[in-house]
Amino acid sequence: MISLKSVSHSYAGQKDIGFSDWQINDGEQWLLLGESGSGKTTLLHILTGILKPKQGEVQINNTSIYELSAKDLDQFRGRNIGIIFQQPHLIKSLSISENLVLAQSFAKLPTDLKRVNEVLDSLGIEGKKSAYPDELSQGQLQRVSIARAVINKPALLIADEPTSSLDDKNAAIVLELLMQQSGANQATLVVATHDKRVKDAFINTYELS
């Protein structure tokens, strides 16, 4: 369970942005809607433990994440939160499977090549295992970034505008894969977007004003 309680944040010299309380139950799939500049990215960063809010509390599976030490928070994030960005941002000097192993080792989990193969297989890119990011298409790269996000079976899967740089066909595929992966890994899914193509797929919506 993930909960957001009376969270607000302000950047230096700017007005406070308040966020209404939010409770996400295990396995739910949520859409986070908001125009550019409405604080969508800020809220996502707060949820993923990379931006400490000025006020309020964020709990993920009964852990108040901003009460952890910096190092513990890094490790907690690595194990419990999977993030998918608008751009795939894979490490260029590492092969696809090495990028996934990297995620395992940063979370201080043992290298599990079986799991790597399993995840790549479920996303239909097992053939690209030894390829480097430069050799893959945009759609394939986005799949790899989904694979990297779910490799450690996180409790929370967060996607920030995962479809906005993709065409209709690939957007639909990526969205479907996200839903499917969050289901397969029993992860709670939050997709932040202003992409109208995505809206219909979700029942739960958290809207920023």
Partner: peptide
């Protein structure tokens, strides 16, 4: 720096 930031989101500490 984006790569390094991604590494942080994957659980790497500052020290790493």
């Amino acid at each position: 720096k984006y790569d390094l930031a991604i590494m942080r989101t994957l659980g790497a500490s500052r020290g790493k």
